[in-house]
């Protein structure tokens, strides 16, 4: 325990190119880019599947199947296969981000799909009956009603990405994972534990921030008055960690 506090309290660890603030910034940068890319792919695709009902079986199997792929193995394969095709730092960054995105898309996709599919058919029917065009139904009814599950997918994905970005240090990327991996290499438990604590706190903060955004973005009318079976079912479809 002392090792941990000594390491964290040392001002030298809080400055410079390999200091804690820089590592946190790197970690957030990897995670942010990944999440944006994954959301840009997963949300529209999930909305489309939920809206049209096409490819449902594929989505469920993809989500379940991806969960069984060991993250670390996938990361190493990507770096070994894709890395040699590129030069410099890019050789590690591109395959790592690629793997992060591949892992983040399924929970986002599943959330968006389940959210739209779970919209009350009566509300959808009424929207159509009032003369809303298909895109209006999607934008004004389906997406707002699906937001709680879209967010639950995004938050699962964010946790997954923050966790996997930690592993990326083992393929010589930056981020907070550096402290865990370097500490291991130098037999410096204080550094390992300090880094681990920072990662844990960062993950919680990211989840907290997303929870805050969700609170603002989701209509109070969708607050869970009843503990619905629907969210129960989704909780089994979405959460993943590494």
């Amino acid at each position: 325990m002392n090792l941990l506090w000594t390491w964290l309290a040392d001002p030298a660890h809080w400055q410079g190119d390999d200091g804690i603030p820089v590592r946190i910034a790197e970690h957030l940068a990897y995670s942010g880019v990944t999440l944006l890319l994954a959301a840009a792919i997963g949300v529209p695709l999930g909305l489309w599947v939920g809206h049209t009902g096409r490819g449902r079986v594929l989505v469920v199997n993809l989500v379940n199947g991806m969960r069984s792929v060991p993250t670390l193995g996938l990361l190493f394969v990507a770096v070994l296969v894709v890395g040699p095709l590129l030069a410099g730092d890019i050789a590690f960054v591109v395959p790592a981000i690629f793997v992060l995105v591949v892992l983040a898309v399924p929970p986002i996709l599943a959330g968006a799909y389940a959210g739209v599919e779970g919209v009350d058919p009566g509300a959808r029917d009424a929207a159509r009956g009032m003369g809303m065009r298909p895109l209006e139904v999607l934008a004004k009814v389906e997406v707002p009603c699906a937001l709680p599950l879209i967010f639950s997918g995004l938050r699962s994905a964010a946790l997954q990405v923050v966790a996997t970005a930690t592993l990326a240090a083992s393929v010589s990327l930056g981020g907070l994972g550096r402290f865990l991996i370097d500490g291991q290499a130098y037999r410096d438990y204080g550094q390992m534990a300090g880094g681990a604590l920072l990662v844990a706190v960062l993950a919680m903060l990211v989840d907290l921030v997303l929870a805050g955004v969700q609170r603002v973005a989701v209509s109070p009318g969708l607050a869970p008055v009843r503990t619905s079976r629907r969210t129960g079912r989704l909780s089994r479809l979405v959460p993943t960690t590494t």
Binding site: A127, G129, M132, S219, G221
Partner: peptide, 23 residues
């Protein structure tokens, strides 16, 4: 045009079909 037609006709269904996210 179907959507124009529907906007000029009131429509009430069994379950109400209210939008849960709107007041």
């Amino acid at each position: 045009e179907p959507n124009e037609l529907r906007r000029g006709i009131g429509y009430v269904i069994q379950s109400g079909g209210l939008f849960p996210h709107r007041t």
